[in-house]
Design a binder for these strands. Structure first.
Lengths: 232, 232
DNA sequence: TAATAAAAAAACAAGCCTGATGGTTTTGGA
DNA sequence: TCCAAAACCATCAGGCTTGTTTTTTTATTA
């Protein structure tokens, strides 16, 4: 559960774009096929990012993974960076959606926030940072540290993501009213999860990650209870 | 204090190898000069890793940064990977040393472990992950995820580092006897610091990092006190 | 001082990646 | 049926990187 299958599909919306061709003479076949190719390319690019890293994600390999010729790909995306740009937007949306799905139904608005709910949300956060979409995006973020052009593209998206991410958290925990405490907890969770996810070489990684999650759950519950007392 | 100067020297042992040439006709000049060139190359490589990232750290650029011709460099290191290998060993030692220096004199063996000591150690851990050596090494670690050859080289070193790192922590906190609690705290600190350090694009990064450090200090002190009660 | 070995520099060949060009097939409408 | 546009494909030149080879410089030692 803690590991990530390398062959996994990144998104799941139009999963196998090239598997079943739409019937001929159908209205708008061209547009549909074009969209499928586009999606196939974006998925292939994500897969390359995950398996090969940003530097080794060449246009030829993306096209190959997407079962598309390089020429066809250049028709949709005139340059490598334009593919990357599209991938960034694609992942932006996908990651928010996946996080919302993972966090759905955790905090019941009718019941007091329980430790069990917090435990669930911590586990969901852990699953979240092990999603292919997270890994692919992280690869881009890491590369952007030393790639000015990429940075210019990803920076505004990342800032927007952080904002929307935090808003989602606030929606997920309607009980948690003290904003300061919620934001601090959010940072604790996210930084911890990220730190663990990016320590892919650590010994006994999963056992340690589990221990940390247990600790974190207790910590969060405590912060929450204190925030309740403080606001009374 | 939280930011990293790009032009900073990585190590500090033989800082400016090319600045002052050893006097001529001195016994073993050649060997000494050779060692200096070697060190200059390693420092240059680290600087390239920090400024340009692993993928863009080419042999030509390393040589250029070290004020050495590519041919001269190839004389010391016959291939790019051999430079990287040397850098890994260099950073292995350097990072352990720097961490020990940062953590020196934190836990006074004669006095009960205080919250102030814990605060200091948390701040030191934060400084640690902002050191150039950490950033350079992290660049290698990240690249190794998708670079099999690099992974083969860095994996044993990384495992050894983790072991020695933990041992150092145990030496730094002689008061902290309950090993389980100490290891859990160590993981909390390290994963958190890493997560924050690698979120170089976050908004209000420093303020949030400070808040997290404050929280973390309280958490650790609590874990420590509980471990004391538990072992009585 | 002269020979020898080490170090440094310069030039070279092979491979890969990108972006561009020109040509071919498919589609939707005239 | 035929045509224009979109989608797709194959090939090529230019630039960059690596590792090798060749040449020059420098230091040790006999």
């Amino acid at each position: 559960m803690d590991t990530v299958d390398a062959k996994v599909e990144v998104g799941d919306a139009p999963a196998k774009p090239r598997a079943s061709r739409p019937k001929r003479n159908e209205k708008g076949w061209q547009a549909e096929k074009s969209a499928m190719t586009r999606t196939a390319i974006l998925n292939a690019a994500c897969q390359c990012l995950i398996e090969l890293g940003y530097a080794n994600t060449t246009t030829a390999l993306i096209a190959s993974h997407a079962n598309v010729s390089r020429g066809a790909m250049m028709h949709h995306f005139p340059s490598r960076m334009s593919v990357i740009k599209a991938v960034i937007d694609y992942l932006h949306e996908l990651r928010l959606r996946e996080y919302q799905e993972l966090m759905a139904d955790i905090d019941d608005p009718n019941v007091k926030l329980s430790k069990e709910s917090i435990r669930k949300s911590v586990d969901s956060a852990w699953r979240y940072v092990n999603l292919p979409s997270f890994i692919a995006y992280q690869e881009l973020l890491m590369a952007s540290r030393t790639d000015a052009e990429l940075k210019k593209v990803i920076e505004p998206v990342e800032k927007d993501f952080e904002k929307q991410f935090l808003n989602t958290v606030k929606l997920v925990f309607p009980h948690w009213e003290k904003v300061e405490a919620l934001e601090a907890s959010h940072d604790l969770v996210q930084f911890l999860m990220k730190g663990m996810a990016l320590s892919h070489m650590s010994v006994r990684k999963n056992a340690r990650a589990k221990r940390v999650r247990t600790h974190l759950t207790n910590i969060l519950y405590q912060i929450y209870e204190e925030s309740l007392r403080g606001s009374e």
